[in-house]
Design a binder for these strands. Structure first.
Lengths: 345, 345
DNA sequence: CTGTTAGCGCCTTCAC
DNA sequence: GTGAAGGCGCTAACAG
């Protein structure tokens, strides 16, 4: 049987209360006594039963999650994952509130952050827009000891505790390698379609993509970036124009959302099979387009992992515990039509 | 505050013990009483606190894991993951024993299974070899109410409770699509290198690969399968011969282990960059080869996920609880040099 | 059939 | 500074 607090108390010749004080390094123990207890802990190889500790504490963690509103399927999927995490919140002793803000709107986001602040939560997770007022709002939270995790899109320089999202430079590089190799010797330029250069994740993907294309496929021409605001209708319009203007277009890298518009435009023009399309985020639409062959590859970040990681990290930070960064790293999934995961209910 | 057993007892006008009996559907409750309790559970929206239940039960789960011995990096990585799960076993109330058997040896595996049987564990996880004596041994375990999960390589028809591994037909298909697209118009045949046709996972990958090549890249010639027994030295020898015989070889799909040998042979022959190589399992060797460009893509199954999933499923089966199959599905990861995960310590 | 009681391992008053 | 006692939510004897 593994040792318990009783065993330590016996071994050290003190009471349970004292052991507990040492365990949670609370004040009120002479350092001699503390030493004795710590020695007992080591010799017995004691490991605290976290479940029992939480049970006794009855602690719960109030968190606020701030997500962009709108039709964006990825974000709606993320919200669904969050809601299913909330369903488990009884068991996990977490208490989550969702705040919704217009996409790409720094002002609104900053306001939401201070609204979150007023609730005095133990932690906040936010899909960041890279702007000074947002950075400032995050700093305010941190100054009040509230843990902050950026989700999906980062905000470096804000002092956030952690970023729960993928390495978007690497994601852009991955897209570049796939594009270059899938195209092979085929002639023609490649277009890049982004949501907005206001968010860090899109900027990073672009940087990675351009870097690889420059290094490994230097002969390939990259057209200027098109910004579709993650809005399917706008994306469709822009791609219509693009296709009309470039009859020799060989590939499109869509690094943001709104892929419904991309797919519609490609199919309408009858160029779904001839243009190599690489997009981000597995949604019902991108999945269908992958299966039909309109999209050739989808890079994905697992929203469920991101949400669960954010919650784990917020808990750890709230308790002042260390985070094993390597363990919280979110992978860049590559999906072809052949390795699609089973559709969830 | 969420409702507890006390609240239910009060609401239903019974004692704690009765509530507990209903909760764990143990016998000894009149159906009228049972109904009353169940109604209380629903009206109060009660959710059992699993942590507290486990604490009270003090239950622990003795499991046996049977793994192939040998140098195979993937299997050693799997074992490492298992050992780190064992390190957490205090917290998870699990008690794991590892049994090691020679690879691809059905006799030895069957013997190990009955050795595991004698320990009367709550569950057994096994990397299966597809042979009648193994199937029989698994059936024996199941007949004694011991849960059995196959790990990495499946054993259909054995009545195992669950398979913790990837869909290897899909993995083979994925490799096929990547190979076909990476090669593009480039001429030349493709070779397939397997470990052994005795294990199900290798057979399945081959099937998927051939299917896609036949459907989508029908012009491409596939050479007869080479079996390297997952042994680097043997693989190197076989690939040496292969390369000598086929100066026009365009690609190699290595669907088993022993990739050290493959990499050595390709580099020795100076054909590392001209032949498109796709392999399985991310190990220190395949990672290095991916970075150097000798291997073009690696398909991976996350050994950590597999181990943790196997343990979760064994626990659930041991408790007679249902398993959400979709949630235990193991993904097929695709790695290029650009999206390699950070190296773990 | 049903209820009482005493823990599981830990934390938290409140005395001393 | 330290200790004793009670309780977190649930389960498991053991009585009735």
């Amino acid at each position: 049987m593994r040792p318990t607090v009783h065993d330590i108390a016996a071994e050290a010749g003190v009471s349970l209360a004292t052991v507990d004080r040492v365990l949670n390094n609370r004040p009120g123990v002479r350092s001699v006594t503390r030493d004795r207890v710590e020695r007992a802990i080591v010799t017995l190889g004691y490991v605290r039963d976290v479940a029992a500790a939480n049970l006794a504490k009855g602690r719960s963690y109030p968190f606020v999650f701030i997500l962009p509103a709108g039709e964006n399927s990825f974000m709606r999927g993320l919200e669904a994952e969050l809601r299913s995490a909330m369903a488990r919140s009884a068991a996990e002793r977490t208490n989550i509130t969702i705040l919704s803000v217009p996409a790409f709107d720094a002002q609104a986001l900053a306001a939401a952050l201070s609204q979150a602040h007023q609730r005095r939560p133990a932690g906040v997770a936010v899909v960041a827009v890279d702007a000074p007022e947002v950075t400032e709002a995050v700093k305010q939270l941190r100054m009040d000891g509230i843990a902050v995790v950026t989700l999906v899109s980062d905000l470096p320089g804000s002092g956030r505790d952690h970023f729960a999202g993928v390495d978007n430079i690497a994601a852009g590089r991955t897209a570049g390698t796939l594009m270059g190799r899938f195209l092979g010797d085929r002639e023609g330029p490649v277009a890049v379609l982004a949501g907005s250069m206001l968010v860090r994740d899109h900027r990073d993907r672009l940087e990675g993509f351009r870097a690889v294309m420059g290094e490994a496929f230097a002969g390939r021409k990259i057209l200027p970036v098109i910004e579709g605001q993650d809005n399917p209708a706008l994306v469709e319009e822009l791609v219509d124009t693009l296709l009309a203007r470039h009859p020799d277009l060989a590939g499109i890298y869509s690094l943001g959302a709104g892929n419904r518009g991309l797919v519609a435009a490609l199919e309408k023009a009858g160029r779904a099979r001839t243009i190599c399309a690489i997009a981000h985020e597995l949604t019902p639409h991108s999945r269908a387009a992958l299966l039909s062959g309109t999209i050739d590859a989808v890079l994905n970040q697992d929203a469920g992992h991101e949400v669960r990681s954010a919650i784990r990290v917020l808990k750890a930070k709230a308790d002042g515990l260390p985070v094993i960064e390597a363990q919280e790293r979110i992978r860049i999934d590559i999906f072809l039509k052949d390795n699609l995961p089973i559709e969830q209910a």
